[in-house]
Simulated scan of single mutants.
Amino acid sequence: MEKLAIFDIDYTITRKETLMEFFKYLVSKDIKNIKFLPRALYSGLMYGVKVYDEKRVKECFLKFIENIDEAELAKLTKSFYDEKISKILYKDAVDMIKKLKKEGYMVVLISASPEFYVKEFYAIKEVDLIIGTKFTFEGGKFIRKMDGNNCKGEEKVRRLNKVLKEKNIKVDFKNSYMFSDSLSDKPLLDLVGNPYLINYKKKHEIEILRWK
């Protein structure tokens, strides 16, 4: 049976929230993209007052890449990882990934962030599997439509189990690890025998690690 080392991404292995960093990166590449900032702020406000759920917020926010060619988006996400994301990784997170991989664990990254760019974390050679929120492409173009549910909370457990079943992987969850900065991941934290909260600000029964 496989033992898993499961990691959330935003604020768990990165110091910043990656979707906003992606927007900022595209603005740095073309200042004209700044015109989408009011939309980003509006969608955030609507989420804050509980008018929009996270699915609608993301579909609204991603207007800045609507209709982009899939091949062009792939080039952008690679350069985004190389030029930006690779610079905001917690060293302690990368060290833990390498340590657990060396000990024989299957390393899984699972995030609510869009899979079209979190897949670039395969650049970390120890990573075996990446699961993120899926979006739709039609005719080779990106459209702002989520494919399925936002990959958060219980949905992370469902997506993980689905992929494991498809790959016919049997898991020893009792001896597996899960790392997250947020209790929104409690369904996954409860699934494993070794759960850890990363840089969590309040006291909690789950052990808290301070990563830099």
Rank of each mutant, 00 (worst) to 15 (best):
V192D: 05
I85M: 04
A93R: 00
T133L: 13
L26R: 10
R210T: 13
E70P: 00
S180L: 04
K162A: 09
W211G: 00
F23K: 01
I34G: 02
T18G: 00
F64D: 04
G132P: 10
S86V: 12
L41T: 04
C60T: 08
E54G: 04
R15H: 10
K141Y: 04
Y117G: 02
K3L: 04
K156R: 07
D128N: 12
L191P: 00
M146Y: 13
P114A: 13
K24G: 01
F179I: 03
G140N: 09
Y47C: 05
I143W: 15
G44D: 13
S176I: 01
L19Q: 02
Y122R: 02
I110N: 02
F7D: 02
K202V: 15
K50F: 08
A71Y: 09
T18L: 00
I124K: 01
A71C: 03
V108W: 01
M1F: 08
S180H: 05
V107L: 14
R144Y: 09
I68S: 15
M46L: 02
A123I: 09
D95I: 11
N199S: 06
E2Y: 03
K16N: 07
K134C: 08
K84R: 02
K119A: 04
K63T: 10
G132Y: 13
L100W: 12
R210C: 06
L129G: 14
Y42S: 14
E207P: 14
L41K: 03
S180R: 08
I143F: 08
N175R: 09
K98T: 15
L26Y: 03
L189I: 14
K98G: 14
E21R: 07
N199H: 13
I208R: 06
V108Q: 02
E205H: 11
F116V: 15
K35P: 01
Y81P: 01
A40L: 10
T12W: 00
A40C: 10
L26V: 02
P38K: 07
E126K: 14
L109K: 02
L41R: 04
I13K: 00
K203H: 15
T133W: 12
D82K: 05
G153T: 09
L73G: 07
K134H: 03
I206C: 07
T136H: 15
E120Q: 08
K165M: 08
K119S: 12
I34K: 12
D172E: 06
M1V: 15
N161M: 15
M146Q: 07
S182D: 05
T18C: 02
K203A: 10
N161T: 11
I208N: 03
M96P: 02
I208Y: 06
D185P: 01
V157S: 09
S86R: 01
R39H: 10
